[in-house]
Computed example of a mutant assay.
Amino acid sequence: MQAIVFIGYIILGLFQLAAVMAGLEDWVGLHWIIAAPLALFIAYIPLVGTVVGMFGAVTAWHWSWLQAGGLFFGPFVVILIIAIVSGALESRR
């Protein structure tokens, strides 16, 4: 189970990194060779990486804002739901 979660986390991170890179390429007009290392740096700045990544998903990939938000905030929502459900189930015992 841990391996599946780890692989999912890596895949999610690659999609988020690609969205940041697409945002830099589309917004600033950078070549991918320059955008790739810059995206690695920007992706780990919490607020800036999220904003640039969401912008990249919306403008470069033509996603809706809801889809882009799901890419960046979806895992938090899933974890929150699991925590609430597990807490409710635990309180019944």
Rank of each mutant, 00 (worst) to 15 (best):
H62P: 02
L17V: 03
Y9V: 11
E25F: 00
F55H: 12
H31V: 06
A36L: 14
V51L: 09
F76Y: 14
F41K: 13
T50D: 08
V28T: 01
M21G: 07
V5D: 10
E90P: 08
H62F: 09
F72T: 06
A43Y: 09
P75H: 02
G70M: 05
A60M: 04
I7Q: 14
M1N: 10
A43M: 10
I11S: 11
S64C: 06
F76G: 02
G29M: 00
V5H: 03
I84N: 12
G70N: 02
A43S: 14
Q16S: 05
V20W: 01
G74L: 03
F76H: 09
V58Q: 02
A18C: 10
E25D: 02
M1K: 13
G70D: 02
V48A: 11
G23I: 01
W65M: 06
S91E: 10
I34D: 13
L38C: 12
A39S: 05
F73D: 13
R93D: 05
I45H: 05
A88F: 09
L71W: 08
W32I: 08
L14C: 13
T50G: 10
G13R: 02
G8T: 12
P75R: 00
M54K: 03
Y44A: 14
V77A: 15
V28R: 00
D26K: 07
P46D: 06
A36E: 01
S91P: 06
A57Y: 08
I33R: 13
D26S: 15
G56N: 06
L71T: 07
V52Y: 01
L47T: 07
R93S: 12
G69P: 01
W61E: 09
M54Q: 04
W63R: 00
A43E: 12
W27E: 08
V5Y: 00
L80F: 14
V48Q: 06
R92H: 10
I79F: 09
